[in-house]
Design a protein around this nucleic acid. Structure first.
Length: 282
DNA sequence: AAACATTGCAACCGCTCGACT
DNA sequence: TAGTCGAGCGGTTGCAATGTT
């Protein structure tokens, strides 16, 4: 038995929204609030899919949206956030009040990409376009790590695939870390590029400790658990080391282990593993 | 003025995840 | 434990607006 469709497609409108539909949606949400998108269209008298209503509200009708052109400051902030987060548009949007993920995504694809290209910067990697030396060879890494030195939120599947690849091919280094933090810090002392690149950027990430009793062998449970173990490429620095989870899976460890500890010390918080899903923007 | 090409963005689609039963 | 639902996300598409020839 398959999952039921989100709406009866035969009886729903598609395409551009009319003024009347907008008014209906606005007045319904004003009266009843957001949520229950599945039942909303019927209750509001709209011949639309609930998903479509949600999108229309979030991306266009919400009263707190900031319309109009992006400012230069917003441009730069988006670039910085993208260099750190990759194509995590919702996370980027969370740092830009009044802007939506869809809007930022479109803006990135139409304006900022071109802007970076004109500066000679690869928008995918945030490195100079002719910086061949820095090209990452592993395809899996390229697909999931939009930005070297960036935190990647690779899927468990691709992470597992990377792990298998790494086991099969020892030449694949920690750059293709299965646990989703890619790239290396290229500073001579091996410290802090990630933070130094954007010293004025306040991400205010809320990081919670890992769940207790996290499975010790993540491979057995990879579809349910993605570990945000990481070394941030700072494997030679005791200041920035943290779990990359590789020892858990008996793979090559690329993280520096704190002596006498059962885990790594990420930002001073000792832990075995991190779950990126618990990383939330304030 | 017309035809064609390009751009920008709203909307859709498919997928994933957490919650619930 | 497995199935289902509701919600959210990122990639892609379609089309109107605009620019160019």
């Amino acid at each position: 038995m398959g999952r039921s469709p989100c709406c009866e497609k035969a009886h729903t409108n598609k395409g551009a929204w009319t003024k009347e539909e907008d008014d209906r949606l606005i007045s319904y949400i004003r009266a009843h609030g957001e949520g229950s998108w599945r039942s909303l269209p019927k209750a509001a008298g709209l011949l639309r899919c609930g998903k479509s209503c949600r999108l229309r509200w979030i991306n266009y009708l919400r009263p707190d949206l900031k319309r109009g052109n992006f400012t230069e400051e917003e441009d730069e902030l988006i670039i910085k956030l993208h260099s750190l987060l990759g194509n995590k548009w919702s996370l980027i949007a969370a740092r830009l009040p009044g802007r939506t993920d869809n809007e930022i995504k479109n803006y990135w694809n139409t304006h900022i990409r071109r802007k970076l290209m004109s500066r000679g910067i690869d928008p995918a990697t945030h490195r100079p376009l002719n910086d061949a030396e820095n090209r990452v060879q592993d395809h899996e890494v390229q697909a999931s790590a939009a930005a070297p030195n960036a935190i990647s939120f690779a899927s468990p599947v691709s992470a597992a695939a990377a792990a298998v690849k790494q086991e099969q091919d020892p030449s694949i280094t920690s750059k293709s870390s299965m646990f989703g933090v890619f790239g290396e810090i290229n500073n001579k002392d091996g410290r802090g590029t990630l933070l130094e690149r954007c010293p004025d950027l306040n991400l205010e990430l809320t990081i919670s400790p890992p769940r207790l009793n996290e499975p010790e062998q993540p491979f057995k449970n990879m579809d349910r658990s993605l570990f945000f173990g990481c070394n941030l490429g700072m494997k030679n620095s005791s200041d920035y080391s943290c779990g990359d989870g590789s020892d858990i899976g008996n793979s090559t460890s690329s993280g520096k282990r704190n002596s006498g500890s059962t885990g790594y010390d990420f930002l001073g918080l000792k832990t075995d593993v991190w779950d990126y899903r618990r990383l939330k923007m304030k």
